[in-house]
Write a protein that binds this DNA or RNA. Structure first.
Lengths: 222, 222
DNA sequence: AAAACCGTTAAGAATTGGTTAAGATATTAT
DNA sequence: ATAATATCTTAACCAATTCTTAACGGTTTT
């Protein structure tokens, strides 16, 4: 369930938004001042923030500079949003001028949430003690960083995308055929072997098990 | 005057959009197929693209992968946008499902154009002692200004946009292919070499590290 | 028992990264 | 327009890493 925070000093708007967003299945937190929002944010991290610019306490603009990693949709009167470009450069993901259509706001919330999801995605895959970062192409196992070759990395990534499921040998070969077109079942055998060796050196554990005649998988069981 | 390109095979929608957007003061180009759009884009660069997914010729998805540096708003039937997250990850800036309200589309176009403007505007990328000013095309490292060639600048900018993340060699080649279409992995090697040399001359430090078989990155660690 | 599959080992082949230098191309100045 | 300069590409080389091949023993299936 996605968490949305509303920051607006207008009690009427605030409550209306909260009601509707709750109906839509969001978990809603309301704040009526900049300082109140700041306090809440120091201990929580919502998935999206609806922010009015004209606030008692800390201003919306100032609050926005402190918010990192959470999309902000600015809700404000037309007069307050003179510099829309500056607003977006200042970190706003989107903005709407009051009065606004509820349906449009819902659509924009949807876009921003999905966008955040897409951005957060594909960063770190985890399986037990193994974590694989697709940004930095690094693999850490039980605290130790492991140096993997391109092919080993590709194989482990494939397996970690379907933990506990068998990945067919042919699937693996196809998937890495761009990098290593000559890879056969013979050489795949070796890559699996080297992967096992490196993982075991890091964690002292077996992760990859073979499924006879089919392929390989990460085993859920110890 | 902002230039908008419409890519939709539905003649009715296409003309209606063109009429309304022209009224709004945009300069509008219409294309009725993926291939037509591709041809136009090879010689022109609009400020925003409205893209239908179901297209004769090249599909919208495929076209999107080729579009760089121009915000794309996907316009498509609900059924065609099953994977919204994938869509946004694939590079779409926003999407709307048909049928849509014209006013809402205009608002979203406005947001994307302003956002692009804000992004293109003068900002300075920083990484440790390096700062790269996209306005003046200057790079300062540890207090010393560095003269970079166009290609070197483009590469460093790419790396600095994702500090600590691997940038694939192919990504780099694609991204600088506009300026230097003949650049291969062989020549990329040299540009990286020259970049390293200049950075080291300025700060006496190594910044760029290679990820074997993948690409290059700016290393967070010293 | 024979055939197919998996695990391991070792060695040679192929790829990649870093470097240097020379030739080709584009840009700028005269 | 021509010359001078800067930039880019190609080629060659070495070192390091990675990939594939081949062989052998053990296990599972037919």
């Amino acid at each position: 369930m996605k968490k949305i925070m509303i920051v607006d000093d207008d009690q009427h708007i605030n409550e209306m938004l909260k009601e509707r967003l709750t109906e839509e299945g969001y978990e809603v937190t309301a704040a009526y001042s900049g300082t109140e929002a700041q306090m809440f944010l120091s201990g929580h991290k919502p998935d999206l923030i609806l922010l009015d610019l004209m606030l008692p306490g800390i201003s919306g603009e100032e609050l926005m500079t402190q918010i990192k990693g959470v999309p902000v949709i600015v809700l404000s009167a037309k007069a307050d949003i003179a510099d829309k470009v500056g607003l977006l450069r200042g970190g706003a993901a989107d903005y709407m001028t009051k009065p606004f259509a509820m349906e449009e706001l819902l659509a924009r919330i949807d876009v921003q949430l999905r966008k955040a999801e897409a951005a957060a995605d594909g960063n770190v895959l985890r399986f037990q003690e193994i974590s694989l970062d697709t940004d930095t192409h690094t693999v850490v196992c039980d605290g130790n960083e492991i140096r993997l070759t391109r092919t080993e990395y590709a194989i482990l990534k494939l397996l970690m995308q379907k933990p506990g499921q068998v990945v067919a040998k042919l699937t693996i070969l196809e998937s890495i055929s761009e990098d290593t077109p000559d890879c056969t079942e013979d050489s795949l055998k070796i890559h699996i072997h080297n992967l096992r060796r490196k993982l075991k050196a890091a964690a002292g554990k077996e992760y990859i098990s073979a499924v006879w005649g089919i392929g390989f998988m990460l085993t859920e069981a110890s």
